[in-house]
Amino acid sequence: MIELDSVAYNYGGGELLTDISLDLAPGSFHFLTGPSGAGKTTFLKLCYGALVPTAGQVRLFKRDVRQMTRDQVAMSRRRIGVVHQDCRFLDHLPLSENVALPLVVSGAEAGQEGNLRELMAWVGLSGRADALPPELSGGERQRAALARAVIMSPEVILADEPTGNVDWDMSQRLLQLLVELNRMGKTILIATHDLQLIRAAKVQVQARVLRIKDRRLQTAGADL
């Protein structure tokens, strides 16, 4: 689904990532870990086409990112749900409209009201549907971001520190949601530096742990 082949990325001051190869298979569950500033977010951006690699090849759904037009990148975003580190909502729209935004921009919102209600209930935000994003707590924002990422029923979900600023209980709930999605057949990639979360997940799903170290991607796992 998402393939990286000897990928390197360089923001201009030396390479941040070097020689990274990975194939995200359908239905797999990956954790991406590494110290802060190691390039986790950059790695995820490469995975959803927000950045073009400076060397190597990234293929989204068998298409080389370099050959894709901007519209094709937009279309592939509809198949990849992204939970951003800072969530990023449209602050002037109520939560329900923010969650439904992917449907609106792809022109597929007709007849989806039931789905939207169901999804809001699933992430436990039914009561906050009319609240504006700035009024939400950190955990609510993270759950809303997850709901927005999955509303198009994407094949892949990329989450950047989804439990970054929530307490342990809330991070467990978010993890539970992601595990459920994985059981429904979605491919999941979570960037986090929370090792406890990874341990908790390993009990429930078969998760592979990737670590960025010295600009390269290593397979961890056994040592956790």
């Binding site: 927000a50 937009a74 279309m75 975003r77 992204v82 935004l101 992917p102 921009v105 927005r148």
Partner: peptide, 9 residues
């Protein structure tokens, strides 16, 4: 945000 959720230019 719009680009992120798949809006075309």
């Amino acid at each position: 945000v719009l680009r992120l959720v798949g809006a075309t230019d």
